[in-house]
Design a protein around this nucleic acid. Structure first.
Lengths: 343, 343
DNA sequence: CTGAAAGCGCTTACAG
DNA sequence: CTGAAAGCGCTTACAG
């Protein structure tokens, strides 16, 4: 009986048309706000829709028309607040166009990513915003081209043939290094962690380049554990170096949070005994003490921009590939000082 | 021409059937792994699918069958890491069943929530996991029943007629109060912020009850700004009270982060001069110093549980409504000490 | 095990 | 402006 009711309650466009004394074609035109329909007719149909509780069936429409109004978003990690902000930007901008976003988490695994991509194709997504899992091969780009599926890469890239929106990581590293150098630091470490991908590589290369152009010794890359909980107790890695760094740049806000805690545990005062620069500048940067000087990358805006590019590409698949790289901003707060020459 | 190609490349089940020399019905059976098909036939069909690059069209199938394999998730805020973890649990558990999740952000606005719900119905979602926007009226529950749409409420509830999975906030508050009382605190504040909803109310009520049952003076509820960035500088509110609190329980990790910073700015040492208990226990709790004693609510597990309930309800819409409320765990770390009687 | 046929709810020319 | 008809890609009885 509840099944009965539910079945009964499914009202179709034909029901609406009958109730309004028009043909189904006319009702369809009203639905899509065609100017072909007279206003009295339109109103009659709209009333019928309301009275009957009609709900448009996008899936059925999709069968005839080439738009599902669904786009996919694949990120490597959902619990990282940085990706949450990215997603927030994507969802906001896509939602504003009346489309809907299917969310998926690749966990940075290429097989899982492959499965998700297939699932999304089965759902007929109009396109996807992809932050490629680490170790994704460039060949994926050819596959995507074969499929004829609009894709924009975000934050990480695997091919120049696809649209891309990301961050000018090299410039960000230069800002950090220049700032520290201006305070007198010469021995600067770059504390990294996590899987290797384009954004990782660009940061590392950017660090080396920035150090070189300041005529500083490059090369002090120190790898920390992937999990926030393990970073603090690995802080000693900083001091196991041949030359002890007076300043450290963090790969992202997770490393910054971990080291900020770990240095505190070592009895060091950040900003006096050692300088710390964060990267990504999510909300925490303001909240930890001392306030963290940080390179801001604006994840929400990046998500919005990626959404915009995807919408454009769906509208015109033959557009040449675009690559937009956004500027970083160094927010100077309280976590850096002059080097302590005693060390 | 690229259009041509794309159109050409759309291979249907009929193409597969022809290529494998079977009827479309048989191909469909293979697709759905029916045991009715002989294994040689099955293999022939599977090869044809592979050779032709066939992609199942779920949307077309949905038209015949009552399952879209899409579920919706509506949360009030995407940038709050707590909701990101919740979402992660939802996506993981739903994804594991082969379904896909449409994500949407209500921004805690009921009109927006209404629009999102409609959009999801248009997409024929099989059900939705809803964290109701603040001020959602109970009438929504009746609407949902009318629609015949499976819904599970998560974290916040508006009606007992709908499934719900949330947290035993009252028990969490009791744990916090009991712990502080056992250290000797008598003047305890509850620092709240954000919109009012069931989870808010339950925490406040739980606080009062817990204080009363310890024979302590209840009632010190102090409201802080909604934005993390504004909380630290509102810390003085704690001291504008008739009786200065020796301990404060935080509404969530955002308040905890903000106050932790603000108290530091006031020159107070947390755990010695004043005690702080967090709520939610997202990753940060381990990372701020002193380590934050916190009531853990396990958002990932809650998301998973909500997904499980939704799947059950979709399978059997006539199930009686279930309400699962998960236990909290008090993680004792370093942010609490005995009250300083000098104050 | 397989084929022919009807139908899910829409859109789109094509006539009127 | 409106109606009749075909078709999007699948599934589901129903015969064989």
């Amino acid at each position: 009986m509840s099944l009965e009711e539910r079945r009964k309650s499914r009202v179709t466009l034909l029901d609406v048309a009958r109730h309004a004394n028009v043909s189904r074609a006319t009702a369809s035109l009203v639905l899509r706000k065609s100017p072909l329909v007279g206003s009295e007719t339109r109103i009659r149909v709209e009333n019928a829709m309301r009275d009957l509780g009609y709900v448009y069936n996008i899936g059925a429409a999709r069968l005839r028309v080439e738009r599902s109004q669904i786009i996919g978003a694949i990120v490597p990690n959902l619990t990282n607040p940085f990706f949450a902000e990215l997603l927030s930007g994507i969802e906001g901008a896509i939602g504003a166009t009346g489309k809907v976003v299917i969310l998926a988490n690749s966990g940075d695994e290429v097989e899982r990513q492959e499965m998700l991509l297939r699932r999304m194709r089965e759902h007929g997504v109009d396109g996807v915003i992809l932050c490629p899992a680490a170790c994704t091969e460039q060949a994926l780009s050819d596959q995507i081209a074969d499929w004829g599926m609009p894709v924009v890469q975000v934050l990480r890239h695997i091919s120049r043939d696809l649209d891309y929106v990301g961050v000018d990581y090299a410039a960000g590293m230069r800002q950090a290094v220049d700032y520290l150098a201006s305070l007198g630091h010469e021995t600067i470490a770059f504390a990294v962690h996590g899987p290797i991908h384009s954004a990782y590589q660009e940061r590392v290369d950017g660090f080396h380049d920035a150090m070189r152009s300041r005529a500083l010794e490059p090369g002090m890359i120190i790898r920390f554990p992937a999990q926030l909980g393990d970073i603090a107790e690995a802080t000693h890695l900083l001091f196991d170096q041949p030359k002890r760094p007076t300043a450290v740049i963090c790969f992202n806000h997770i490393v910054a949070l971990g080291l900020s805690a770990g240095l505190h545990d070592c009895g060091l005062t950040i900003g006096r005994d050692i300088s710390l620069v964060g990267f990504d500048d999510v909300a925490d940067a303001e909240a930890i003490r001392p306030k963290l000087t940080s390179v801001a990358t604006g994840p929400v805006a990046i998500g919005e921009m990626a959404a915009r590019l995807l919408v454009d590409r769906i509208a015109d698949p033959d557009l040449p590939a675009r690559h937009v790289v956004s500027d970083t901003i160094l927010h100077i707060r309280q976590s850096c000082g002059r080097p302590d020459r005693k060390n």
